[in-house]
Design a protein around this nucleic acid. Structure first.
Lengths: 108, 108
DNA sequence: TGAACATATGTAAATGTGTTCATATGTTTA
DNA sequence: TAAACATATGAACACATTTACATATGTTCA
């Protein structure tokens, strides 16, 4: 059984509970903002402090902080404090894969 | 080179142009609404008419029609007219895979 | 052709979201 | 401890989104 068939089988099972569908939509909502997408790209290779991210994207520190909170709440980033700075990085390869699937669709 | 490494390489390449990032965010925005997610599940196995979808989800016909337009504009559904009815189905396995990746994250 | 049916669309109301400004919280170091 | 710095948070505004209602458009068939 190849990967595609496996995926199809999984997908075409019964529709998940409404609650799960809401969670799913909420997850995608997080990816549905260009600032958050840019943050995710920015911290995809190396962890970065909040100010560095803000500078890299040329946006307000508070804007980035607000959006990092959304990413945090949805468990999409890892957080590490070192002295005054707080470093953010992407949580796992899962996140990258979701973005890649989207990129594939957009770029085709 | 295994699949994961391949994906990482693709992902960690330079950040795409701003324009692409906007498109990417717009794509995910489409997945970020529970009504549209439910529609996508509903038509994932068999094509369905607009009214059937509306009945299946117990929502107004116009609501479904509005959301189907969003899905259409983003090339996520296929459309086929047969007489008075218009049948919608998911466009490709791409779409299913994006949803599955999301489900994996939500269900873990 | 006209009535009946299926779908699409315009509009308006309610709700949600992103950003900024001001400020609070937490950490370091002089 | 106080000043300086990094980050987080509350509030307000502008803007976007979802939905429902009313109605237009398009198709069939009597």
């Amino acid at each position: 059984m190849d990967n595609t068939a496996e995926n199809n089988q999984k997908f075409t099972a019964e529709m998940p509970d409404l609650e799960v569908l809401f969670e799913l939509a909420d997850l995608f909502k997080v990816f549905g903002d260009s600032t958050r997408i840019r943050i995710m790209f920015t911290i995809s290779e190396n962890e970065m402090s909040v100010l560095s991210i803000a500078e890299a994207l040329n946006m307000e520190q508070s804007t980035i902080s607000h959006q990092l909170r959304v990413l945090r709440q949805n468990k999409l980033v890892r957080v590490r404090r070192d002295g005054k700075q707080i470093y953010y990085s992407l949580d796992d390869d899962h996140v990258k894969k979701i973005i890649e699937m989207g990129l594939d669709h957009v770029l085709e």
